[in-house]
């Protein structure tokens, strides 16, 4: 009575992974190409360079971001200072490099905070109906509608400037959106029949969540993390620009951008440096996010039967 192992069959008739009825969806579901790899590689490459720079600067002296040289201020880029000098004669390139550590550091940690809080709350809200779900949904709503700048101002006022206050602010601001997206995805997953089957077989709640609900969420988390990182990077720069982030004088891209305002005509390179850095970093994050999304779609449509 052994049945030969065969590829799965759809309840309909088609012998290939296509829609049964000739609806437009069938037309769109072509075999996915490899367009996503370009985004992934380019974004990944840029990110790798940035990360490598940050790590390297921890061990190798790549120029002193704080060495002032009042005689050599506002010099355009030349052999000695590849990106020029700022209003205090400090080497812009060295400051950009120091800024990488700051930006990547804050971006990564804040994203990690947002992902952890958001994913946990989102999943719990999806799993447990009733008061728990209501609480989670409402707090997410509140979190999303709270003005971002108000939170930043409050935190700075209470805790002061610096790396950790800034990280905290950004983490607090980013988790609601993450929670909402994960909640939406998890709702669908929790309702899958195989989850019910597991529960009816005596599999406990936590175990079901970990084995059945969480794994399919990972691609979503990755994509969300990439885009959140990009958003937080811009937000951090904005906050520093407004004076709510890094302490004055600290070499961060936002600060540098802020300082460059006064010297826009005289020394445009002061603005170009940090602007380019921000753009590159955000571009990298978005490319990686795009690439991950496309790869996930490709995987999904290839396995749809």
């Amino acid at each position: 009575m052994t049945a030969p192992l065969q590829r799965s069959e759809a309840p309909g008739d088609a012998g290939v992974p296509l829609a049964d009825a000739p609806t437009p969806v069938g037309v769109l579901r072509r075999r996915a190409g490899t367009g996503h790899t370009a985004s992934l590689y380019v974004g990944g490459a840029i990110a790798a360079v940035l990360v490598a720079t940050a790590l390297l600067s921890l061990f190798v002296h790549l120029g002193d971001p704080n060495a002032t040289d009042l005689l050599g201020r506002l010099h355009s880029p030349d052999g000695a200072h590849l990106a020029g000098t700022d209003e205090l004669g400090r080497d812009i390139l060295a400051r950009l490099v120091r800024g990488v550590r700051w930006s990547l550091g804050i971006g990564t940690i804040a994203t990690a905070i947002a992902v952890t809080i958001g994913a946990t709350l989102g999943t719990i809200g999806a799993w447990r109906p009733g008061i728990v779900r209501t609480l989670m949904v409402r707090s997410t709503d509140i979190g999303i509608s709270f003005p971002f700048l108000v939170i930043a101002v409050v935190i700075v006022a209470v805790v002061g400037h610096g790396f950790w206050p800034l990280t905290l602010t950004l983490g607090v601001v980013a988790w609601p959106t993450m929670a909402r997206v994960i909640y939406a995805q998890a709702r669908g997953l929790c309702e899958r029949e195989y989850v019910l089957a597991a529960r009816l077989a005596g599999v406990g709640g936590l175990r079901s969540l970990l084995t059945h609900v969480l794994p399919p969420l990972v691609p979503h988390l990755q994509v969300m993390a990439a885009f959140t990182f990009a958003d937080l990077l811009v937000a951090e720069s904005g906050l520093s620009f407004l004076g709510l982030g890094a302490p004055l004088g600290e070499a961060t891209w936002g600060n540098m951008l802020s300082a460059s305002r006064a010297y826009l005509i005289q020394a445009p390179w002061m603005m170009l440096g940090p602007a380019t850095a921000i753009v590159l970093a955000v571009l990298a994050a978005n490319l990686v996010g795009d690439g991950l999304t496309a790869r996930d779609h490709a995987k999904r449509s290839r396995s749809a039967a």
């Binding site: 899958r192 029949e193 597991a198 077989a201 599999v203 175990r207 084995t211 399919p216 396995s303």
Partner: peptide, 25 residues
């Protein structure tokens, strides 16, 4: 269950699926 396509977790192997009740209990 009715739907053989929905009642099995597509990410697990058949062995894991069948063994799940045994492990859980």
């Amino acid at each position: 269950f009715q739907d053989p396509y929905a009642s099995l977790d597509p990410r697990m192997t058949v062995g894991q699926i069948i063994g799940e009740p045994l492990r859980a209990q």
